[in-house]
Simulated assay, not measured.
Amino acid sequence: MQTREFFVSAPGKVILHGEHSVVHGKVALAVSLNLRTHLRLQSTSSGDVRINLPNIDTFLSWEITALQPLLAGCGAEQDGLKELDGDLLKRLREFTGISDDSTDTRSMAVLAFLYMYLTVFAKSLASITVSVWSELPTGAGLGSSAAYNVCLSSAALLSARGAISSPLTPQQESARWSKEEMELINRWAFMGEKIIHGNPSGVDNAVGTWGGFLRYHAGNITPLSWVPILRILLTNTKVPRSTKVLVSGVKDKINKFPSIMNPILESVSAVSCTCEQTLTEMAVHGPSAEHYNILEELIDINQHHLNVMGVGHSSLDTLCRVTLARGLHSKLTGAGGGGCGITLLRPETDTSVIQSTIDELKACGFDCWETSIGAPGVQQHSSAALSQDILKILNSY
């Protein structure tokens, strides 16, 4: 063990533009959401491993002597691992009683934690306590599982074992790792995502690791440099939806009306590229009113296209109506069919307008937060950098 205690956080994500069209090889922009998952790791002498997940009411511990036999047959050095160890995963399911078809949040979080803990500490299992608390709602398409896995891979495991450095100096409140270490964090977080989601794209964990804006096209993920942080309202309509069903519906519509739908997909891709160009100009020359005008028009265009694809919902229509009445522009983010939406806030937007919008959206039965996009990726923090509320939660377990 390299340290007795440390804190890390990682952001959630939203899709700014390109949802659904990205499935068909078009460009999408994913961006970090400054609602974060926070993790505290402590090394102990208790002889056991503990995981505390208060968001999902999960508090578990295992004796190291009970976990050790699960490593029989596993390779001792796993840093270059690219594929999941199916045998270890099977033993873990049997050990925890988590069935092969289980997908509930609690089971997947526990399975991901134990898998990464055992593979990273395979040479010498360490006695640790990990507590995780998140500002992100689960199951809302906001990258909550990826933020969790990024925190686990960077703090609970790699830093604690000494596979990567502890970048924080006594003079700093927050710090980030080197590019090479971030790549290792991202690879391990992707392993956790595979455990939870089966066949993830890798976008969510990349956003959680690198932060900022990422361009995703045909499986290639490219972080964008020098992009501005934008203020938004994030609204969760709390309307449940099935991503699989919505994706299938778009595919059926493309097959039925290819001459109509294919140009729509191309247009959405063009929206993503135009947005990328605008953000770059804002970063280089400074934001202007015209830049915000363009961003708002792109939001409107993309929302109309998503409605044409058939992934809109009356709850999202309500979001757009409520915000547009105050001169604000909104679109769905993610799969659609309910779920979440984002609303761009201009620098000059009055606080009274923002608050009245939040109040009305909450009166519609929605959850709503004022936050930002483009925030930093995974970071290590000093305890002084954390709010007293977060610190109190993490220190209470």
Rank of each mutant, 00 (worst) to 15 (best):
F6M: 14
L16W: 12
H20A: 06
S21P: 04
K26G: 03
A30V: 03
Q42G: 00
V49L: 15
S61L: 08
T65S: 15
L67T: 14
L67Q: 14
L67E: 13
L70P: 09
Q78M: 11
E83W: 01
G86Y: 08
D87V: 14
D101T: 10
L111R: 01
A122Y: 00
K123P: 00
T129E: 15
S131P: 01
S131D: 07
T138W: 10
L142S: 02
A147I: 06
L157H: 07
L158D: 06
G162T: 10
I164T: 05
L168A: 06
Q172L: 10
E181S: 10
I185V: 15
R187N: 12
M191C: 07
E193N: 10
K194H: 01
I196A: 15
G202P: 06
F213T: 14
G219R: 13
I232R: 03
V239P: 01
V245L: 13
S248N: 13
G249N: 15
D252S: 15
N255Q: 15
L265P: 00
C273G: 00
M282D: 07
A283I: 04
A283Y: 11
A283C: 14
V284S: 14
P287A: 14
A289H: 12
E290L: 12
E297A: 11
L298W: 02
Q303D: 10
M309D: 04
S314Q: 14
D317V: 07
L319N: 05
A325D: 11
L328W: 03
A335S: 15
G337S: 07
G338M: 02
C340I: 09
I342M: 11
L344T: 06
L344Y: 05
L345H: 06
T351E: 15
T351M: 12
V353G: 01
S356M: 13
T357N: 05
W369M: 05
S372L: 01
Q379C: 13
H381S: 04
A385N: 06
L386H: 01
N395V: 01
S396R: 11
Y397D: 10
